[in-house]
Design a protein around this nucleic acid. Structure first.
Lengths: 150, 150
DNA sequence: TAAGATTGAGGTTTCAATCTTA
DNA sequence: TAAGATTGAAACCTCAATCTTA
């Protein structure tokens, strides 16, 4: 495959994701007043047993730097969505835990987001195609494991 | 398809794109000292007849606000990659045109970027799968045309 | 020594207001 | 009136330095 074609094919992926993210974030903002990174954090926490995770783990999930996530977590806490508390086993660690309010928002926003994806994605792709898509993307994601220099 | 599964499948797409973008930007930074948005602008210009485009069109391509792109263009111009000049037909418009240096960088960076995609993508996907992927993503992108509210 | 988290400084982007031209 | 571009203020993120605990 030629260089140009390769770049173009992947460019389509990037454009599509940017487009969906844009409308999805608008949607989340209107209905639940949360940004996409906020939604991702709430979703990750709501899917974790105990509804809590370390700062570092959450930071990685949204591709934030350590320092950047500290300030992001400050805002989440100010908004009453999460609560921080120290880990007793390892006192360097701080847990970030979903509040009752955070849990409620996560559920509402998930339903909202799923509806949007249904409209925007499944009007264009079959269920089978979406699964194929997921399979390919998982393979790519898994091959990009941090610091795997081939 | 269940809400959760739908969100998960699309989440895989978002994660994979974020991962590839991360390593691709590192690569471009090391070899050509340009960021991903800079590469996208140079690429778009280099593919356009006349090697020039309006501020607004370029801003849309990288999902920047109008004001944000003005300052971004300032830096591109300071780096000697592009040059601005007024449009004579419509004097509200500013053209952004690739310089000779910008063209050279665009070519080098394209080859570099294609190599990276080859390594990272085609080690995991067949050519056929990549084309399938592009086809699906083009369909999604085209259905998200700005302000198409279904 | 190193890992997790925070802080302050600096750079980048958005937002709203403004200016110019259509 | 509206579109294209720019500006200043505010918000946000990164980076490097720092603090605490392992």
């Amino acid at each position: 495959m030629k260089d140009q074609e390769l770049i173009t094919q992947w460019g389509l992926v990037v454009e599509a994701v940017a487009g969906v993210n844009r409308v999805a974030e608008q949607d989340l903002m209107e209905h639940d007043t949360i940004s996409m990174p906020t939604f991702e954090v709430l979703l990750r926490l709501s899917r974790t047993p105990g509804h809590r995770l370390q700062m570092t783990d959450l930071a990685g999930g949204v591709s934030f730097s350590s320092g950047g996530f500290t300030k992001f977590a400050d805002r989440l806490e100010d908004a009453g969505l999460v609560k921080r508390h120290p880990c007793l086993k390892d006192r360097r660690v701080t847990w970030v835990e979903l509040t009752a309010h955070g849990t409620a928002i996560a559920e509402r926003a998930s339903a909202q987001h799923a509806n949007l994806l249904r409209q925007r994605l499944l009007s264009v792709l079959t269920d089978h195609e979406l699964l194929e898509l997921g399979r390919m993307m998982r393979a790519i994601r898994d091959s990009i494991r941090p610091d795997v220099l081939t």
